[in-house]
Design a protein around this nucleic acid. Structure first.
Ligand code: FES
Ligand code: FES
Lengths: 142, 142
DNA sequence: ATCACCTGTAACCATTGTAGTTACAATTGT
DNA sequence: ACAATTGTAACTACAATGGTTACAGGTGAT
């Protein structure tokens, strides 16, 4: 299955926080932009907050970036909103038969390959920073 | 969420077909090795068959590789058993608000980044062939 | 021809992750 | 006090997954 759209939504939110940094970005306002429910936004922002990427103001309302856009890369965002722990992009089939030559060794063999593939993907995400996203976004609008 | 364990199972099956190429590899025999239900195996083998990676013998029973292990790489296996079409590893959030600067352009911007990350992962899979897997498997058993 | 064995596939189930929604306590500025 | 907003719990609907039973149809052996 696909990687959760929380990731896309998270990037959307962060980009919006940067672009609209003058305004007050309440979950309802953001929800209007993303076109979803405010609670969905608050959930994602909660994850981003735990990861130290955004600050929120309970009571007063609104969220803001906790770092410069240049210092936030997509791998951090990915990790923040991803439920599965790192190294488990590919599911292993559990309890292979230890009496079987393949079963005894497949896990370790696959682990190496899977980790390599996963890292390759993550490295690409790590290369991209939020300010590049925003730049691309604004440029695309002209 | 993780990528389906069908991928891991498929690799397991293919490795077994190569290693046990003398014997008759029925779905029941393979299921014993993988430690799952024969129907699960037949389902995966069905997908591998459609992709031209294995041959099966209805009636008589058993499956075998349709190509040399050296000529099967893991990307082909991945594609064979993956339900989601290529280019959709990352889910986009649909219907972003076109009245919003971010919403208008986020899809295209993300698409570029996501495709790059997905390709990086797939390139790693493409580098690995079945005979490398089998080699690693057998070596690990000693 | 019958028989045992196997594949291919449909049908069903339980489990899980996801996204949307309602509801509400707690927080904060006015 | 009051209005607005966050953080969270609870519930729903939905889709993918993996396991399971069942069975029609193919194939070789006797
Ligand atoms: S245990 Fe996975 S194939 Fe033998
Ligand atoms: S943030 Fe996704 S549409 Fe404005």
């Amino acid at each position: 299955m696909s990687i959760s759209s929380r990731f896309a939504v998270a990037i959307h939110i962060l980009a919006l926080l940067d672009i609209n940094k003058e305004g007050r970005n309440t979950s309802e306002f953001i929800a209007g932009s993303v076109n979803t429910n405010p609670v969905v936004i608050r959930r994602v922002i909660g994850l981003l907050g735990k990861a130290g990427l955004v600050h929120t103001s309970p009571g007063v309302g609104g969220a803001s970036l906790a770092r410069l856009p240049r210092e936030i890369n997509l791998l951090e965002v990915y990790r923040a909103v991803q439920n599965d722990p790192p190294g488990e992009l590919f599911a292993a089939h559990d309890k292979p038969n230890p009496k079987c030559l393949v079963g005894r060794n497949i896990q370790e063999t696959l682990d190496t390959v899977f980790k390599r593939a996963e890292s390759a993907m993550e490295n690409e995400l790590a290369k991209v920073t939020l300010d590049q996203i925003v730049f691309d976004l604004v440029r695309g609008d002209q």
